[in-house]
Design a protein around this nucleic acid. Structure first.
Length: 458
DNA sequence: ATAGGGTTAG
């Protein structure tokens, strides 16, 4: 069938795209093009390019780009933004920049698409540079910056940008809050969480399910399970993500029993658990020592929805057994894995050996790890800690020397506490804090009261 | 008839 005019043809392509039938949309475009009638215009290209992007098909994108150029539409702003967005989402940032350069009158959309691309492809400085000098900003450009920083793990930047946006008088919409709340969750600042929550109510009135979910996880990560549960209870709409957020919150805070209970309630509402649910449950069981419950959940999932199982779930089971000193079961489980265990699996085992002072097993597992990766520092450290724990100082310091000699780099873990919305970060043996002396005095008092605890030198 | 931004684990 032929289309009466270009409007009808474009509408037909657009309808396919809206129905998610992107492959058909691209085919229809090719047919229209082959017929030669009607002649596609800038709207047609914009529409079909979106489908090529949704398909993540760089070949189709490049062909459409060339074709648009042939039709003299390359410098149109609609075609241009669609091209920038396409290339940015394919990770081809040079081409994306080129497409913006070819656009005669680039607008907010063109710039925003490029900024989002820079952030997604690990170039936050370029994104920020462009954002600072773009001719015009709107709430979407702000959201792209906030969301992109949040995804890139630049939590402080994301929160800062959110504040700046509000200061500039830009009214945040519902898209901004999930991003900024994720970032707040990563910094763990409860006071900030509360103020962003208040800001959401002030700006939006009603909170949608995305924001509710983000609040549940944010409060849990900031250490306030009370607020987390309160938000969850107040949500009108709940989906799998909401339940997962609740379950994971319980799990992170060591409340395995409550996580299991929440899972039962979730099933009762007719929702099906997915891979994240299972991971949260296993994690919760892990930290509450609910070994049999956790393993039985795993086996049920293996039976009923084997497609949801990923290596991470198997790793949790290894952790579950080895933390509980059930090394034989852990070993048997490892041998029966349906895939090659990665380093993480063996590290899990050493972790268990450290808790239970199992030197012999730690040695044999360390051998396996170093066969896979001789540069793996964390397993050396874990092994030397096992030696420390059983009082074998010589072997322990030998390993430390070995690490130094090989020049292996180790990633230092850190912890922090939040005092009046300011995070104070510490690493082991740190003395850089301005109140360091006082802090250590208080610490000594605490440690004196607690002499039975084993203090592991890492 | 067309465009850019959102939530869950480690």
């Amino acid at each position: 069938m032929r289309y009466r005019d270009v409007v009808a043809a474009t509408a037909a392509i657009g309808a396919l795209a809206r129905a998610g039938r992107h492959r058909d949309a691209v085919s229809l475009f090719s047919r229209v093009l082959a017929d030669g009638v009607p002649r596609p215009n800038e709207f047609t290209f914009g529409t079909v390019l979106r489908s090529a992007t949704a398909l993540r098909d760089p070949r189709a994108g490049a062909q459409l780009h060339a074709c648009a150029a042939k039709f003299g539409l390359r410098s149109d702003v609609f075609v241009g933004s669609a091209l920038v967005d396409h290339y940015a989402k394919m990770g081809a940032m040079r081409e994306a920049q080129g497409a913006l350069g070819d656009t005669r009158e680039p607008n907010v959309v063109s710039y925003t698409a490029l900024i989002a691309g820079f952030l997604k492809n690990g170039m936050p400085e370029k994104a920020l540079g462009l954002f600072r000098c773009m001719p015009e900003k709107n709430v979407v450009s702000w959201n792209a910056m906030i969301g992109g920083c949040s995804q890139a793990g630049l939590s402080e930047e994301a929160v800062g940008l959110f504040r700046e946006m509000c200061r500039e008088g830009v009214w945040p919409n519902e898209f901004a809050f999930p991003c900024v709340l994720t970032s707040v969750a990563n910094t763990g600042a409860l006071g900030v969480a509360r103020s962003v929550h208040a800001s959401a109510i002030k700006h939006l009135g009603k909170l949608d399910v995305y924001i509710g979910n983000s609040l549940v996880i944010c409060y849990a990560r900031c250490g306030s399970l009370e607020d987390s549960v309160l938000v969850f209870a107040s949500m009108e709409q709940k989906n799998v993500v909401s339940w997962n957020a609740l379950i994971c919150g319980y799990a992170q805070n060591g409340r395995g029993e409550e996580a299991l209970a929440a899972h039962k309630r979730m099933i009762a509402t007719g929702l099906k658990a997915n891979n994240v649910t299972l991971l949260g449950l296993l994690f919760g069981c892990n930290h509450a020592g609910l070994v049999d419950e956790g393993y039985s959940l795993f086996k049920t999932a293996q039976r009923e929805q084997p497609d949801t199982l990923k290596p991470e779930h198997y790793a949790c089971v290894v952790d579950l057994f080895s933390r509980a000193k059930r090394f034989d079961e852990a070993k048997r489980f490892l041998e029966d894995l349906p895939f090659e265990p990665g380093l993480g699996f063996w590290k899990s085992m050493i972790g268990g050996c450290l808790i239970h002072w199992n030197k012999d097993l730690a040695e044999s597992v360390a051998k396996r790890i170093h066969a896979l990766d001789p540069e793996d520092t964390s397993s050396y450290i874990l092994l030397s800690n096992v030696y420390f724990s059983v009082g074998n100082w010589e072997s322990a310091s030998m390993i430390r020397r070995h690490i130094k000699e090989k020049g292996l780099k180790r990633i230092t873990g850190c912890s922090w506490i939040d005092v009046q919305d300011k995070a104070h970060v510490f690493v082991n043996g740190d003395s850089r804090h301005p109140q360091s002396d006082e802090i250590y005095k208080v610490l000594e008092v605490c440690l004196d009261n607690d002499e039975d605890e084993h203090c592991l030198a890492v």
